[in-house]
């Protein structure tokens, strides 16, 4: 990871900008929502591999700063929603696409299913992913 950052530093012009955009494990919130209301049903469970990935990425960027390649200029967090039409669709996605780094406990599955089933006709399900956006300046 640090080697890749060294390569990026090499191909960036003097004063160039590095943008690091990535999701962070942070017990993402799950909601059932419709035009009329929003109901929180639980949280995603962070799994050790996901947390370790975040730690490794943070450590690599820190090392790149220590190496004098980049200086951090600006940082922000923002929410990014993943939206599904049904609770079942959300569960399948998490079990198939995100299985390596997050999970979903039984209580949250049940709460989301029942809230969606009893909700308005236009109810959908969403996960609020925590995003990190950081801007670095290349130092030459």
């Amino acid at each position: 990871m640090v080697h890749a950052l060294g390569e990026i530093h090499r191909v960036l012009a003097s004063g160039g900008v590095l943008i690091d955009l990535r999701p962070l494990c942070d017990r993402w919130s799950i909601e059932v929502f419709s035009a009329r209301e929003t109901r929180h049903t639980g949280h995603i469970t962070d799994l050790p591999p996901g947390l370790e990935d975040d730690t490794a990425a943070n450590r690599a960027m820190h090392q790149a700063e220590i190496n004098g390649w980049f200086i951090r200029e600006k940082e922000a967090f923002f929410p990014l929603h993943y939206v599904w039409d049904t609770a079942s669709d959300m569960e399948k996605w998490i079990d198939e696409e995100w299985v390596d780094f997050v999970g979903l406990d039984e209580e949250t599955r049940r709460a989301t299913r029942s809230t969606w089933a009893l909700g308005d006709a236009d109810s959908r399900v969403r996960v609020k992913v925590k995003m990190l956006l950081t801007r670095y300046r290349a130092i030459k």
Binding site: M1, H3, A4, E7, I8, R10, V11, L12, A13, S14, G16, V17, L18, I19, D20, L21, R22, P23, A57, A60, M61, K140
Partner: peptide
């Protein structure tokens, strides 16, 4: 880890969900 470009080719590098 092996970016096939000469040094100082780009103004912006974007790590897109990839670090």
């Amino acid at each position: 880890e092996t970016i096939p470009f000469h040094k100082e080719t780009f103004d912006i590098a974007l790590l897109a969900w990839s670090l």
